[in-house]
Amino acid sequence: MNQKKSKFLISCMIFGYAFLYVPIFLLILYSFNYSPLLPVWGGFSTRWYSRLLESPEVWDATLLSLKIAFISATVATVFGTLAGLALARVGQFRGKTVFTGMISAPLVMPEVITGLSLLLFFITLWQLTGWPQQRGMFTITIAHITFAMAYVAVIIQSRLAGTNRALEEAAMDLGAKPLRVLTDITIPMLAPGMMAGWLLAFTLSLDDLIIASFVSGPGSTTLPMMIYSRIRLGLKPDINALATILIVSVAIGVFIAGWIMLRQQKQRALLANE
């Protein structure tokens, strides 16, 4: 497809990207506003940043969110990889239909339903066994593992569908046991997919408000829960400062990852041409 784009297409793209990015730029701009009355401009200032960094509440919430995101992303990557292998490499097994349904449902399930059902589950479990006595970090982590592993499984499944099985089959023919094939061939082959899955799971966990609000208990406030409780009542300049820090760091990360991937692609294309 190498035709010139029509004026219509170009204006659609300009409008679309402006629609996606102007709000983010305004959000960043107002974080440097001296005036506490958003969005009235009162001169340049970084005072909201210092106020933000001085607040222990923000640090606590950030730390809790990072802990939950780290643990849940790691476990979700392991479980999601197993699930992806089960879908793509294990032939028929009993309950495969139920299994594929349970893997694809969390991707589109409204979060209020997931949150409500997990909370009721934890309460029922507590009634029956006396555990978990308190909801908080632990219950949020379980909830995040459950929905993030579905995303990881989909990534792994599509990677597996795209690779050929010649290497795995060759190793088997040479007498390698299935576990050896898995650890020495399949998993290294899947490593980039697992990395992408881990990052996605980590971000989903950091970003989740609704499910965490349902399954959390007193004293466990994640970063999105803290942000939400503040902005419900209106505009808060220190939240703009927080948003700026988060968005800029994510943007840098995405562009570095994108650049590395582009370079790898170009190298591969060069090798293929030689």
Binding site: P23, L206, L209, I231, L246, I247
Partner: peptide
């Protein structure tokens, strides 16, 4: 990037 913060941007 955070869904919540992208919604917040429109409040302003």
């Amino acid at each position: 990037t955070s869904f919540l913060l992208r919604v917040y941007a429109w409040m302003g």
